[in-house]
Design a protein around this nucleic acid. Sequence first.
DNA 1: TTGAAAGCGCTACCAA
DNA 2: TTGGTAGCGCTTTCAA
Lengths: 319, 319
Amino acid sequence: MSPITVSRALRNPDMVSDELRQRIDGAVNKLGYVPNIAASRLASSRSHAIGVIVPTLYNVIFAEFLQALHEVLLPVGFQVIVVNSRYSIEEEENAIRTLLGQRVEAIVIVGVNHSKLARRMLIQSRIPVVEAFQIAPEPIGINVGLDQIQAGADATRFLLGHGYRRVGFVLGQRDERAVERLRGYQLAMEEAGLFDENLIFSQTGTSSIALGARVMSEIATHAQLPEAVFCIDDNLALGALQESRRIGLKVPGDIAILGFHDLEFAACASPSLSSVATQRYEMGKLAGEYALRLLNTGKPGERRTVKLDHSIVRRQSTP
Amino acid sequence: MSPITVSRALRNPDMVSDELRQRIDGAVNKLGYVPNIAASRLASSRSHAIGVIVPTLYNVIFAEFLQALHEVLLPVGFQVIVVNSRYSIEEEENAIRTLLGQRVEAIVIVGVNHSKLARRMLIQSRIPVVEAFQIAPEPIGINVGLDQIQAGADATRFLLGHGYRRVGFVLGQRDERAVERLRGYQLAMEEAGLFDENLIFSQTGTSSIALGARVMSEIATHAQLPEAVFCIDDNLALGALQESRRIGLKVPGDIAILGFHDLEFAACASPSLSSVATQRYEMGKLAGEYALRLLNTGKPGERRTVKLDHSIVRRQSTP
DNA sequence: TTGAAAGCGCTACCAA
DNA sequence: TTGGTAGCGCTTTCAA
């Protein structure tokens, strides 16, 4: 029989008669035949692949985001190609080049700040582009994110609302999202006439429980302890919480602690951790769904911004 | 000029004269030309890609493993294709099929238990295969792992060595590695004449801080508290630690807690967490290096087992 | 250093 | 339902 019949039997079994299909299946199993996807992609000029760029795999929020994308895209026959930009705008540019070289049919990217060239490549590619996690001032295509500035300001106002005046901000590396939350913090503090650069506590390094403990240890040696700290994420917050207890500070009596993202462990910390809840899974789901929709409607350039809610979950680490 | 000159200029710039190279670079930039990798792979029958199968991205140990693989493989021009099997042997089989379809030049896979067909596909593919994280009774090719049974037994004996008799075992889902550590625990307990099924505490679900807290909460309502617990990993251990403190149990006075993997936060928990240190990064590095070596020597079928050490890090949560 | 010809393994298109 | 033909966009091989 002809190659094309085999091709059909494998991709679309009911286009082929029962008998042939069975013979083909038999031969495939016996020979251990595996179709060459590169040839298929070249011939059909369809890759059935979607690229995703995340800054790291060490943070569970991106694992959740990716999980949602997988759950939306795999069942409809797309491969998800994950590339890690390691928080570097240059590596992001390379990642985009790699993905476009693979002729991915859409790109989902965490973040909204790209290099000039990266942005141009994304636009010129004429494939659906979804920017996620933040709100883009000038989205390339679809933008599914949360308003990080607003969230940072809300968190800060929540603490200020308890009458605290010396509210600190704790962070590790200043990636895009950290910077936006910091800006929100600064806005809220300035609004209250309480902004003071000395209340910003940071150490370089990716955000982790250990880093949170280190920063809190440094804060504790500071002349005047802040009354409350807003930590850039729950990892830092948990580390800060543990260190506070270790050195004998009461939480929230001596210092109140507020985290961000409401990770699974926040509820079971002791004291339990107040946090700003965000929707990473939902964001991944929407990102995947929008990519698919644009692919189906053939409107790769459509622009749209979807803003996801955040909310403050009040637990024991704040009043 | 001819296409082949362009191809050369892009892959191997110094095979082409300066003048042509500059003209080509200019055109590439102006047109936004991106080479089609599928065509390249088809023509050269080289994918420059290596496949990695991990059970989940939620656990940082696999992120560390992947990071090492990336650091070894990207600089020498390989793409790393990561697929997630979600702890399912069927999904692992599909992942292998996908990767072979992409003509990856080697496969690195976490775990040693595969379906019959998966094993056959891996062998028939005639590409280097690296099984990682465990010691395989019958390795397919290279095996870089740690002796999980031994580690489980060592951890248990460490606790028994302090005179404890009621040493419990805490775990979530029973994946391959969990089962091996459990076997080690059972061996050590039987050896001491102390094995008792009622000392195994588990709840279904992926291992997390929250799950650890839930299991400990259940243990506490148990008639007789174990004197010590060995937790399948540090996430469970930290959850157990926090819950113990929350309900007023002294650690290690009322109950000693030992974790596994020595994650970054173990040292800064309060009390700090004793744990079994393992080398995930080193494992990824070796896995990548062996894959490369076999690729270069052209001996895809070479067998070899590399056993990585583990060690017990004693901190405050155990005597 | 450059180029011409052929072909990688599939699938689209049209025909039977 | 099946097959023939052509071609996807590169790289290999050999020649100039």
